[in-house]
Amino acid sequence: MYLINSKIKIYKNFDINIIIFNNYLKSIYNNKKIKIKIINKNKYLYIYIKNINNKYINIKLLLNFYYFNIVTFLNKYIIKLKIDKKINLLLIEKYNLYGYNLLFNYNIIKLIVKRKSYIKYLKNINKEISLMNKIYIYQKESRIDIYDINIKNLNSNNFIFIKNYSNNCINNIYGIYILNKYQFLKNKIIYFNKFNNCKNNQKFISILNDYTKVILKGIININKNTRNNISYQNYKNYILSNNVYINIKPYLNIYSNNIKCTHGVNMGKIDNNIIYYLLSRGLNILKSKLLYYYSILYENIKDKNILYLIKNKIKKKIKECLIVKK
C-alpha cells in the first residue's frame, strides 16, 4: 500500500482530483464555489457537483486511474457524475500503468448534465492497456464535447451512449486514433434524440499502420415529430499499410422530415500533391508528412486547451508511425 501511495500524484491545477485504483476510490477537491456530494462504495463512486452561486463557473476535474499488476485480473469501476447548472467543466481521464498490461479493465462512466452547462471531456488513452470503456450521457439543454483519443491502447473497446432530455442540446464527438503494430480498437456510438433544435456532430480521424484492426460504428437515432435537428457523422481514415483492417458502419435512423443529416466515410492514402507542394518548399519527406498529418489531426481539435494537452503525445506517436514505415 505504501508503494502505491508513493506513486499517486495530486495535480494542483485541477479543482477536483479523483484517484481510482484497486478497491480504493479517493477524491480531493479545493474549490469554494462548488459543493460536492460524494458516495464512495466498493468500486462505485457517485459525485454530485453543485453550483452554489448560480453564476457560471469553470471547473477542472481529473479522473486519475491507476493500474498495478498486483491487482486481480479484472478491474471494474463505476463512476456517476452529476453536474449542476451553469458549470463549465473540463473533465480529463488519465491512465497510469505500473507493471504488465495484460489486465482487462472495465470502466463505466455516467454523466448527467443539467441546463446551461458546458462539458469538455478528454478521453485520452495513452498507456498500453486493455480497456473497455462505457460512457452514458444524459443531458438537458447543455453542450458536451467529447475528445476521444486513442494512441497507445492495446485493446480498447469503447461505447458511448448519448441521450437528450430537452430541446437545444449540443453534443460533439471528435475522435483521433493513431494506431500501429497490433493495436485494436472497437468503438460504438449511439445518439438518441427525441427533442427539437439539437445538434450532434461526430468527426473521426484515424491514421493506421502495420496490423491494426479498427471497428467503428456510429448510430444516429432521431424520433418522430422532432424539428430542426442537425446531425453530422464523418470518418476519415489514412492508411499507411496494406495489412490494416477497417470496418466502419455509419448508421442514420431518421423518422422525422425536418432534419439536416449527413454521413460519410473516407479511406485512402495521403494526398501526394500536398506532399509534393511541401517538398518543393524545401521540407524533407519526413517533415512534410509530419506537417501534413498534424494539420489533419489539428483540424479535429479546435479547442486550444485540449490541443495543448495532447499536442506532444500526438507528435511523438505520428513520428513513431512514420519512422518505422521508413
Binding site: Y277, S280, S295, I296
Partner: peptide, 13 residues
C-alpha cells in the same frame, strides 16, 4: 522555387 498555378489548401495549419 516554383510558384504554383493552383496553390494547395491545408486545413489545420
Amino acid at each position: 522555387f516554383l510558384s504554383f498555378q493552383n496553390p494547395i489548401e491545408i486545413e489545420g495549419i
